[in-house]
Write a protein that binds this DNA or RNA. Sequence first.
DNA 1: GCGTTACCGTAACGTACGCTACGGTCTGGA
DNA 2: TCCAGACCGTAGCGTACGTTACGGTAACGC
Lengths: 196, 196
Amino acid sequence: MARRRDLADQQQRLSAATWSVLAARGLPGLTLRAVAERAGCTTGMVLHTFADKQALLVHARELLHWRTGQRADVAQAAAGTPRAALRAVLLQAASPTEEKREEARVWVGFLAAALADPVLADLHRSYNRRFVDRIAALVAAACPDWPSADCAAAATSLVALVEGLNVLAAVDPATYSDEAQHSAIDTALARLDAPL
Amino acid sequence: MARRRDLADQQQRLSAATWSVLAARGLPGLTLRAVAERAGCTTGMVLHTFADKQALLVHARELLHWRTGQRADVAQAAAGTPRAALRAVLLQAASPTEEKREEARVWVGFLAAALADPVLADLHRSYNRRFVDRIAALVAAACPDWPSADCAAAATSLVALVEGLNVLAAVDPATYSDEAQHSAIDTALARLDAPL
DNA sequence: GCGTTACCGTAACGTACGCTACGGTCTGGA
DNA sequence: TCCAGACCGTAGCGTACGTTACGGTAACGC
């Protein structure tokens, strides 16, 4: 036996470095050397912690999901009514702050990467469906008399709206300002109160 | 004087090849060699037609905008009422066919590229704002008594919804099926008939 | 204190990239 | 018919990538 390392800690540090590089230079700039430099170590250490670059990517993708899920949990728990919880979760999923805008850029990067990487595509589908299910459950709680099919349809629409706002705001924050995103979500939610 | 070439034709062929590669292999797979192979020529010819890779990307981005704009024109002209035109334009912007799904993948690729490339970002903003303006004009025509600010807000919401559907369907066509996209758009349009 | 061994930095490999220089090829005008 | 020259395929440049092999180094058991 000899030197022991804290594997989990190393993975987290490298995940943070991966995130930082991803936000600063985008997906094309995400290289092992850049991650190592940001983490203050060498590529050798990176590839001793993660088997290869794809493992690092997968870990960073899980980190993104964990962050957004965590924030959604907080927003949901802080709200009083189901309706308020729905609104809070949707609003936090949009990107009013610079931190969220950074997340949106990273999200777009992973989305584009998923188009050519089956593993990342599977992760994306899984995480997105989980988000849709969460929204569907909140819609069902806010509108108890709705059939579940309508809740599911409303959930997919709301998620599409939120992700669309995120994506468009990532590259054009002037047109898709915080207020524009806010009003878009509130207008969509107003439909829940007065269904056809 | 000597051999003459059809520059416009070559540019169009190479743009189409860029398009094809982007749809098939995603943004990381978009290399000059891949484009040349798809176009049946060499990298030398590619770089004699376009100054560099960015010029090729810009031309392909313009081609994408031209295609979608063309299709929107057709849908808009074929509709009878402003309301029908709005619905037709939004529905064709979604991706019910494999061809549109390919366009959506390409769109995502350019979006991700725009995050790191200011020139592509400018193009993206310009084209997207033009699309928002088109939708806003159709909303204004369909709802003549609305203030223009409300039309603009509705337009940004509708565009965000449509692009969100496109983006999500590109990577998860099962969850975001044609019917789901259809009903999402129709539900959003129904709000125009019964404003608050 | 010392050897063993897990750990990781160093260096380099092979590959693929964007891009360029050059020379062959084919065309259009005289 | 023939030549000037526009055109483009070939080959390779320099660079950066992911990955690997190896040797130094530091810590744990005895």
